[in-house]
Design a protein around this nucleic acid. Structure first.
Lengths: 209, 209
DNA sequence: ACGGTAGTGGAACACCCCGTCCGGTTAGCT
DNA sequence: AGCTAACCGGACGGGGTGTTCCACTACCGT
């Protein structure tokens, strides 16, 4: 656990390295999940392990920084959905885009669902985003298009489920995510004759595996 | 990689140990996935690592033997569905029961989807089962209840997705699986106004992770 | 009862991972 | 040009996992 100076006070080459590390981490974690070793990240970034650890004192820190912008993207997706005049259309767009986002970022779902001990902002952002989704769902229900027994944790359910889908290429992953999202939307749609859903379960924030 | 004599020619104590190991493996892999270490299996079975490896030359072998009966159960679930006079009802039951089965056996999905190099029967059983599902789906489509753009790999998609769902207790896992299955069925149901699904993706048989 | 052999448990091997530290080197800044 | 921050690469410790070695044990037929 070394010192970590503010990124903007770094020497230019150090700054470059930092950016390269983050880029590599995003690609690697996104493609192969959080299991990618730190040394592998360092190797691909053409950097020594020590450099990596000087910039990011722990793997957790690297993961959080690497996915910070995905997290922001996630939030903005939901905000876009909220600002859609048609709440059901907004809701569908959120489901689609979130599934696609997670499809291209295998590790992100794990990070998103994980209970990182040292990432307060990550956690709070997630909570806020979920609250926004709740508001969107409320409107979509009021409009009569979202089934009335939908609950927020259903979206977590779908997210977790989507993360279980593995494809053999990024292109296939995207296809699978799109098809999956479409199926979920169909399942969420309010339809008169449909039977009610079984009761929801409590979904945990799991430790990083 | 040691010799592995036929189970029925074993000495009595060895036979006992073998059974205990299998029982422990089923519970452990079922509850916590294939990540459970061999040592842990041995410890819980009150057996040394060597004993474990004398009976099952590799972890893969243990996994296959442990889930052999789940595999058979899987097959019989599909056959039950096929023999249902109402193909759509049969189809729904298959989805529900398979999701529940996989919910209680975390590791099984991984094993089911995995491309085990040395498990010919496992693979062939899976293929046969999938073919049976295909026949069931054909009938359910003909009856007009299953959406016509359903393809077999959609079931694999749902299976993979279901395996991504994690709960904090077996009871919650079952609840989550039931709710998830209900959502999927709703998505699979043929409904006149529904838009067609995006194209399916090729899903791989992944190596054991 | 007894001896041979299958069976056993614990230590050990080989490998991988995270995180750390250090000697010698490079590259930015002034 | 020189000072210094930053870097590289390798080695190390601690922990984990799949698998094997070996001396000992306990079963079972005679």
């Amino acid at each position: 656990m070394l010192e970590t100076p503010r990124p903007d006070t770094l020497r230019s080459d150090a700054r470059d390295n930092r950016e390269r590390i983050l880029a590599v981490a995003r690609t690697a974690f996104g493609a192969d999940g959080l299991g990618v070793p730190m040394r592998e990240i360092a190797r691909r970034a053409e950097v020594g392990p020590a450099t990596l650890y000087r910039r990011f004192p722990t793997k957790e820190a690297l993961v959080i920084e690497a996915f910070a912008e995905q997290m922001a993207l996630c939030t903005s997706i939901v905000e876009d959905g909220l600002s859609d005049p048609d709440p059901w259309h907004g809701f569908c767009t959120v489901v689609e885009r979130v599934c696609e986002l997670h499809a291209g970022n295998q590790g992100f779902t794990a990070a998103f669902m994980a209970a990182f001990p040292h990432a307060i902002d990550f956690t709070t952002t997630r909570e806020q985003t979920l609250r926004a989704v709740g508001e969107l769902a409320r409107r979509a229900k009021a409009a009569g298009h979202l089934r009335s027994d939908f609950v927020i944790s259903d979206l977590l359910l779908v997210l977790q489920a989507n993360s279980g889908v593995r494809a053999e290429s990024p292109a296939d992953a995207l296809l699978a995510a799109r098809r999956f999202a479409a199926l979920q939307i169909q399942g969420f749609r309010a339809s008169p004759g449909a039977p009610p859903l079984p009761p929801p379960a409590r979904l945990p924030l799991l430790p990083v595996g």
